[in-house]
């Protein structure tokens, strides 16, 4: 048994501290997923907390043959999708002013200039992602930040590999189009051609 399996077993028996170790280990992937999906620091934190609470109460239904990280991400992304759909159903404005992510403001380790560049990059990414319908966004986020295979994403979203492929295809073309409109520099000719091989 590795460390994670020990924590899981202890958590299953009601040991909150053991589950705390798991929260610490997975807080960034879970929070990042929620933030990319919801584009709002407060909502993302609330959703990430809710995802961990759900995981804790449903620990009995977790199948140890799967990776815990995948299970956790699947709970988080499904919860975010539900939230987005509910939000739309309630007709609340999605275009409300969004607070900037606090971590972007506080991290000065790379020096102020590098920080400004990084903030711009994060802002551009969020702008692009928000242009996608939520299921496309989910696919893109899972693919790019979590390095999941088409198989794993299809499994998680309860659909087929070909559906995921076509979703990613359309999402990428949409992002490319919006990226150009938003002023994202296209890759130069020579670099683009060498990238093929």
């Amino acid at each position: 048994m590795n460390e994670e399996q020990v924590w899981l077993e202890q958590a299953r028996q009601g040991d909150k501290a053991a589950f705390g170790k798991l929260i610490e280990a997975y807080q960034t992937p879970v929070y990042n997923l929620a933030y990319r999906m919801l584009n709002n620091a407060g909502e993302a934190e609330e959703a990430a907390q809710e995802a961990f609470i759900r995981a804790y109460t449903r620990l009995d239904s977790y199948n140890p043959e799967h990776k815990f990280s995948t299970w956790m991400l699947s709970i988080t992304s499904n919860y975010c999708i539900d939230l987005i759909r509910k939000r739309r159903a309630l007709l609340l404005s999605i275009d409300e002013p969004l607070p900037p992510h606090p971590a972007l403001m506080s991290d000065n380790s790379k020096g102020p200039e590098a920080q400004v560049v990084m903030n711009e990059q994060q802002a551009m990414v969020q702008t692009l992602l928000q242009e996608l319908p939520e299921d496309y966004r989910q696919t893109v986020v899972l693919r790019y930040w979590y390095d999941l295979s088409y198989d794993e994403i299809a499994d998680m979203m309860d659909t087929t590999v070909s559906a995921i492929k076509s979703r990613l295809f359309r999402a990428r073309r949409l992002l490319a189009e919006v990226g150009q409109e938003a002023g994202l520099d296209p890759v130069r000719d020579s670099a683009a051609l060498t990238a093929v091989s």
């Binding site: 960034t28 992510h101 971590a103 990226g179």
Partner: peptide
């Protein structure tokens, strides 16, 4: 354009809570 977006996404680090 595709490559630009692809590279951007690949190089953007995850955000921590």
């Amino acid at each position: 354009a595709l490559l630009a977006v692809h590279t951007l996404l690949q190089q953007t680090p995850a955000l921590s809570p």
